[in-house]
Amino acid sequence: MEITFPLVANAVIAGLLLGGFYAAVSVGVAISFGMLDVVNIAHPAFIILGAYIAYTLNAWLGIDPIVGALVVSPLFFLLGAGVYRIYHLAFESRGRGALPGLAFFFGILFITEVVLILIFGVDYRMVKTSYSELSLHAGSIDFAFRLIVPFIVSVAMVVALHLYLKHTFFGRAVLAVAQDPLALRLMGVNPVRVREVAFALSIATAGIAGAFLIVIQPVQPSIGREYIGLVFAVCVLGGLGSVYGTLVGALILGLAETFTATFFGPSWSPAVSFGLLLLALAFKPTGLFGR
């Protein structure tokens, strides 16, 4: 294929926009896996759940999916708190390692997927918003609104999370909980409670990211799996537990995927994130910015 300027420029723009969305998808795992050491491989299932809830709200009430997701995000927060309680009672408090916990989350991933199939079937669902068809043109370069809107809200969400974790007492408690739970207890903070809230927060971001997903592309219950490798690749690339690192990792992955799709065909792009993940794990498991 001939490599022309518009082709490359479009790929760069699309890659960056996609990367912003990937940051929203992955930032929850940066919290749960990176900061809390809870290997929540069911995270993408909550994203797909969020996508279907946004879809349903839109179909019933005509609410914009992103607005709808923001409105129901407290429900996702509660759901996350509930899941963490079960996880804590069954695994953490009994001192059982992370590995049986993996099977637990794998089961949740699977149950969510099957329940969605039983309710909605296996057809692709999508949402049309007022901006779905619009795009900006700068010369031969396109900026599609269905990518720009999620991008902006994603980046806003990631930045807000970063500021929250850096500058509030609770945020610092989350960062401290992995390092020194005893010190937290001495300060009168219950580390389990901190972890519960942080995990709930991570699930709330998944719900919102689900709305972005259904704005960007049609959704089907089993596409969640494709995002498992992606979220972990982003988190490992970004250095586990760093929110801004996650954003950078996500942008890198977005670029890598669009370039692969542009020059080798879209059927190869799922392999990109997983390939990068394998490489990252093999050669630099602490991430590009890790210590």
Binding site: V39, I41, G97, A98, L99, L102, R225, E226, I228, G229, F232, A233, S267, W268, P270, A271, F274, G275, L277, L278, L281, A282, P285
Partner: peptide
């Protein structure tokens, strides 16, 4: 060989990755 030097859950995640990569291939 690529992943077993790391902690156990990295191996688990890598096995998921292997499945999708091979599927794509």
């Amino acid at each position: 060989y690529l992943t077993l030097r790391l902690r156990g859950h990295f191996f688990a995640i890598a096995t998921l990755a292997l499945a999708v990569m091979l599927f794509t291939f």
